[in-house]
Structure formats: structure tokens, C-alpha cells
């Protein structure tokens, strides 16, 4: 059957469209409501979780790592802001801000000694010693790295990078090239190198090795030692030789 276009036909089409639109809106609304409900359930549960485990998160490093993994999966950064309900609820922001402040403090205190480069494990040792007074919680390297990544926002040049088997924390904006990194890596076993060690190890020219060592020395990352009986100059790297700088300071405060 062939129908010609008429008023009734147009009206029917318009009615259909309205009905479809209203149905669509209903469905969308139902979905939104469902989402809202789910979110509110999620939030309630999370609040409960946070209340229950707040102390665990602060005290237990393994738990803290798992909590971060969970947050990452659901796409939430609990450290992004201290105002969000995450941070308010968990105090987790405060935990890392406090850690960050202590890290800056330690890096500044030891900078004259190590030129602003410090072994991550050594930094962790300092942190543990400093915090033991107030709280008996354990700090992991993971915690340090998280806190340092937040310090980057300050544009202060804080960074963690890997040299050989170790991770170093840099608190000054020194640009180290590949040669420098390899020399630091070579120094890790004994805490020092001689120019000869480096020349033999990498087959570089003596001249360029001495140049690189001099550069590191000017940056305050290396100290020379001419006192060994064999007469060979040793280049010491305070950043890879663990030393108890902090305990001296506490002594000085005590007297």
C-alpha cells in the first residue's frame, strides 16, 4: 500500500520521536541513579575501610603498598591533594608531607658532606632514626620514593635515579652524564676509585677520566685522598659511603 505524506503521518512520526527520547532519558536517568547509588555505597565502604585500617596504613608498610596498588587500579591518587576526602579520611597525605619535609631536612643537613647526592638506603636509615622518637613505624624505600615524587612539584630538583644496583637521591640540580654515572657505579664497591681503576675498567683515556673526576669534584660529589701509602690518589664518593652524620649532630645538640 502506498501512502502519501499527510498531517497524520507527520504527527505520528513526531510522537514516536518524543516517546523514544523520553525512554532514552529514563534509561540514562536510571543508569545515573544506579551509578550514584553504587558510588555512595563504595564511598561508605571506603570510609569504613579507612576508619578500620587507618592505623594499619600509617604503621604497616606492606599494607600501605597494597593500599597504593588498590588506589592505582581504581584510578585515584590519594596524594594528589590534601583537601580531598581521601586525604582527610586517611591522613595519608599528611604522612607523606611529613616524610617529604623530613627528607628535605636530611638532604640539606648532609649536602655539605655529600654534595647533594645520597644513597636512598642511607636516607631511609636517617629517616628511621629521626622518626623513632615519635613513632615506631617502618618507612620503606617505596615510601621515600613516593614522598620525593611529591617534592618534584616544588621544582626543587629532587629526584631518585638508579646507578648500578643502588638508587640515589639527588637534591641538587646537577646534570650527571653517562660517564659520571658509570664512575659512581664503579665506586660503589669500595666507596672510592683511583683514576687507574677507571681506566682499566672501561678502557677510557686517562685524560678524560681525570676530567670527569675533576668535574665530580667541583660539584662537591667527590673528595680526594692522597694519604694512602701506595701514593695513588683516591677519589671518595660520600654519596655511596654510608656514614653516621646524624649521630654527630645529636651529640652536638646534647652538649
Amino acid at each position: 500500500m502506498r501512502r502519501r505524506p499527510g498531517l497524520a503521518g507527520l504527527q505520528a512520526a513526531a510522537t514516536n520521536r518524543d516517546q523514544f527520547r523520553s525512554l532514552g532519558e529514563d534509561v540514562a536517568k536510571a543508569r545515573t541513579d544506579l551509578m550514584k547509588e553504587q558510588l555512595s555505597v563504595f564511598r561508605t565502604q571506603l570510609e569504613e575501610f579507612a576508619r578500620k585500617h587507618k592505623n594499619d596504613i600509617r604503621k604497616n608498610p606492606a599494607f600501605r603498598a597494597q593500599f597504593h596498588a588498590m588506589c592505582q587500579k581504581i584510578g585515584v591518587d590519594p596524594l594528589a591533594s590534601n583537601k580531598g576526602f581521601w586525604a582527610e579520611l586517611l591522613g595519608i597525605g599528611d604522612f607523606y608531607y611529613e616524610l617529604g619535609v623530613q627528607i628535605v631536612d636530611i638532604c640539606l643537613a648532609t649536602r655539605a658532606h655529600n654534595g647533594g647526592l645520597m644513597d636512598l638506603e642511607e636516607l631511609r636509615g636517617h629517616l628511621m632514626k629521626r622518626r623513632r622518637v615519635s613513632r615506631d613505624s617502618t618507612i620503606t624505600e617505596d615510601d621515600c620514593i613516593r614522598a620525593i615524587s611529591k617534592l618534584k612539584a616544588l621544582g626543587s630538583g629532587f629526584e631518585v635515579f638508579t646507578v648500578g644496583k643502588r638508587r640515589l637521591v639527588r637534591s641538587v640540580p646537577t646534570e650527571l652524564n653517562k660517564v659520571h654515572n658509570q664512575i659512581i657505579e664503579a665506586a660503589q664497591s669500595q666507596g672510592y676509585v683511583t683514576a687507574e681503576d677507571i681506566v682499566n675498567k672501561f678502557s677510557w683515556r686517562t685524560g678524560s677520566v681525570v676530567d670527569a673526576l675533576e668535574t665530580l669534584m667541583k660539584e662537591g660529589l667527590v673528595m680526594v685522598d692522597d694519604g694512602h701509602p701506595d701514593g695513588k690518589r683516591r677519589y671518595w664518593f660520600p654519596c655511596v659511603s654510608a656514614m653516621d652524620v646524624d649521630s654527630d649532630e645529636s651529640d652536638a645538640n646534647a652538649t
Partner: peptide, 19 residues
């Protein structure tokens, strides 16, 4: 004795001014 007393380079005069 402080830490630096056991760190050999502190017994050599350092050529870099700040150090």
C-alpha cells in the same frame, strides 16, 4: 670521634673551595 675522623679524604686538604 666524629664520623669524618674515620673518612680518609678528610685527612687530605681538599682542593675545591666549598669542600
Amino acid at each position: 670521634m666524629p664520623y669524618f675522623y674515620n673518612y680518609p679524604p678528610y685527612f687530605t686538604l681538599q682542593p675545591v673551595k666549598d669542600t
